[in-house]
């Protein structure tokens, strides 16, 4: 247990250690709110929810106005004060680990990125650096920017709700909590010297050398590297995205997709399939030692 304690108490890891219970608490709060609102939805529809949130308005009130101060900002003031106090206490109690002048010829082992990028660093195990460091982050950012344009679901607007927003909520939770935060946790607790896998309670053995016997996806089918392998890999990737087409044919009739429309669906399908490809690739890498699915002279996926 001592290595685990060592990781938990390292000053570098304090944000993550605090983040886990904090986020768990927030998730809990949201879940309870969503449940409450869903019950109200069932009972009295949206109006019930609105009443619950805003309180009864006097009849005939034209265009109600709510002052920003204090009713909006007071919560933010409290939050700001609390943040300052927490930061002050934190800076008094925990000293920053000041080290010697960085020596470009000496790399510490392991050399971990700051916690907010550990997820991406972990992704490097499974993907080519161009993909993990450039393509996927760009897609993440692009996807987040596109959400307002892709989310045409009118249900649950302005309050926490599960019914009517199942798709959006589950996709978001999967992507954020499951993938992003999960990868950060893996990078913090389960990676040691040489970026080898160490369970959190395992002491870090600096001399452990793990043999890397990876192969490419086509090799699993007995296809040796070459144009044939590229073709097979390309076919696999196309087939994966082709599942989106399949989905369109099967689910076209649903009102949600009808609302969405063809082009929006294509974008959503693309982004969703890309996101789902990450755990699939991880499984292929960890379980079958597959390094690349699609190898071409210009890029590898």
């Amino acid at each position: 247990m001592e290595p685990l304690l060592h990781i938990l108490l390292k000053p570098d890891n304090v944000p993550i250690v605090l983040m886990v219970p904090l986020f768990a608490g927030i998730l809990l709060h949201w879940w309870r709110a969503a449940r409450r609102h869903d019950r109200l939805l069932v009972e009295g529809g949206e109006a019930a929810v609105r009443r619950e949130l805003d309180g009864p308005l006097p009849e005939g009130t034209p265009e109600p106005k709510l002052h920003t101060w204090p009713y909006l900002l007071r919560v933010e003031l409290i939050a700001a004060l609390a943040t300052v106090v927490v930061l002050l206490v934190w800076s008094i109690t925990l000293d920053a680990p000041l080290e010697q002048l960085a020596d470009p010829t000496r790399t510490p082992n392991p050399s971990k990125a700051p916690w907010y990028f550990l997820g991406l660093q972990e992704l490097l195990v499974y993907f080519d650096p161009w993909v993990a460091g450039v393509a996927l982050p760009l897609l993440i950012i692009a996807g987040l920017c596109l959400i307002p344009y892709l989310d045409v679901n009118p249900a649950g607007s302005g309050f926490h709700s599960w019914r009517g927003r199942r798709f959006a909520v589950s996709v978001f939770l999967f992507g954020f909590v499951g993938l992003w935060l999960g990868l950060i946790l893996v990078g913090t607790f389960c990676r040691g010297p040489g970026w080898n896998w160490f369970w959190p309670w395992e002491p870090w053995d600096r001399a452990r050398a793990v043999e890397l016997a990876t192969r490419d996806w086509p090799a699993l089918f007995g296809v040796s590297p070459g144009p044939g392998a590229s073709l097979l890999g390309g076919a696999t990737v196309l087939g994966w995205y082709g599942l989106g087409l399949v989905g369109w044919r099967l689910l076209r009739h649903r009102p949600a997709l009808q609302r969405l429309g063809g082009s929006r669906y294509a974008v959503v399908a693309f982004l969703l399939l890309t996101m789902l490809a990450v755990p699939v690739k991880m499984a292929l890498r960890l379980g079958f030692s597959v390094k690349y699915v699609w190898t071409t002279p210009w890029f590898n996926l």
Partner: peptide
């Protein structure tokens, strides 16, 4: 004519913000 109102509902039921504010200032 726009009427200023106070929030009601759940928000109105919450405790005053003064206490947390003073506590945090301290």
């Amino acid at each position: 004519m726009v009427q200023p109102v106070k929030p009601g509902g759940r928000a109105a039921e919450s405790t005053s913000y003064r206490a947390p504010f003073l506590l945090l200032c301290a």
